[in-house]
Design a protein around this nucleic acid. Structure first.
Lengths: 228, 228
DNA sequence: GTCTATAACCGGATAGAC
DNA sequence: GTCTATCCGGTTATAGAC
């Protein structure tokens, strides 16, 4: 079920070689067009051999995810140190997501659908994905915390998880985006990040107080029931 | 690519028999556990024979969708004639979605993920799904139009499509719902439908006017670019 | 020209020997 | 930890039947 950590020196290297071959081939040909046989061949192991390290083709995708998350995280570190404006932090973070994922655009569709399956071990809402999910949510907590925006405590509580969800929405949009340079997605990011910050500001209005409490209460109850 | 309409009496009946066998087996065993060989066997045709009518296993799912849509549509007809309150219309419509889909709860996960794939012909945002999508959006237009709620024209324009999207969100939540009688989903429906109607009411507030225009403008531009 | 069957192909996954 | 041999199921090619 879980991905086995190799026990020996030789195992470690085989595992790394297989993973690298898979990542390369996914980029070259896409997820579905990459066969396990091709991965094994390029890695110089037998077909059955790869299954010793990765219980399924899907499990190779999880590593792929972690890989891009780490690239993304590194890419935005300077911005998060420098910039204090929330809209700018959020915009920069989202742009970096798109830039980081760009090499995998062709693959992203089939990966997304694989991962959307609730019974897949890779489902972002499931238990197996929790470590990585927590890391990404923590990244968005950092985006919020390091800003000079004044955010009501109840909103700030739910915001990181909401932004993680928002990121998935943007990625799904980006998957469909055929515009040159993915400019459409960048425009949507600019507009939505700005809107999000504006709406957070409006959340303090007395007329909105009631609905805001209800929305947040609903989100909390959903999180407790499903994500935990 | 498209599903061929049978030309003869015999062809029609074969097609219907295959479809019925598939629907039954999906319910009995789930989507993935149902093999094309099993469908063919139960339908009394050869394996290759089924491919004459349905170009792929996925295409059987599209019929499955249409089937549930028709059940749903019929189920809410009396409500839509009788009830004028928007919240009640929406709540009833969403509850009926859940009730209609309940027999397929176990199958829904794998179907959802199949369909989420942007390169799948069944993707709800894609061209092949347009006829059915239009029907569902029209249903929500009816939910809105038949109510006595006073809704700004620009909001009313985008509302049906937004509700169609909202329905997909509820269905995804429902797929994860393990509570007895799917009570959690029903609670979430009650709360969210009420919130939606409330927020529509708030959309007329002068402070929100600017953001509302922007949100709607963004949605329009997305629809024009992607859904058309 | 419309349907149906048989026999294969291909790729993900597994069993079990070494 | 690695291999070979095999299974299983979606899909396709193609020959023939109505």
């Amino acid at each position: 079920m879980a991905i086995e950590a190799p026990k020996t020196r030789r195992g470690e290297s085989s595992r790394a070689v297989i993973l690298q071959a898979a990542l390369d081939l996914f980029q070259e040909r896409g997820y579905e067009a990459t066969t396990m046989r091709a991965i094994a061949e390029r890695a110089g192991v037998s077909l059955g051999g790869s299954y010793h390290y990765f219980p399924s083709k899907e499990h190779l995708v999880l590593e792929f995810y972690r890989h891009t998350h780490e690239l993304h995280s590194a890419a935005i570190a300077p911005l998060l140190l420098r910039e204090k404006d929330l809209a700018a932090r959020l915009r920069g973070t989202m742009r970096a997501v798109i830039v980081t994922c760009e090499p995998f655009h062709a693959v992203a569709g089939s990966i997304f659908s694989t991962v959307a399956n609730p019974s897949s071990p890779l489902n972002p809402f499931g238990a197996a994905a929790k470590p990585l999910r927590d890391e990404v949510v923590a990244l968005y907590a950092d985006v919020v915390r390091g800003s000079d925006a004044r955010i009501p405590a109840d909103v700030a509580d739910m915001l990181p998880l909401t932004l993680w969800l928002y990121q998935m929405g943007i990625l799904y949009f980006w998957i469909f985006d055929r515009s040159p340079g993915r400019l459409r997605t960048l425009e949507v990011i600019d507009e939505t990040t700005d809107l999000i910050v504006r709406l957070i500001g409006l959340a303090n209005l007395p007329v909105l107080r009631g609905s805001r409490k209800r929305v947040l209460g609903l989100m909390r109850s959903i999180v407790e029931g499903q994500i935990a």
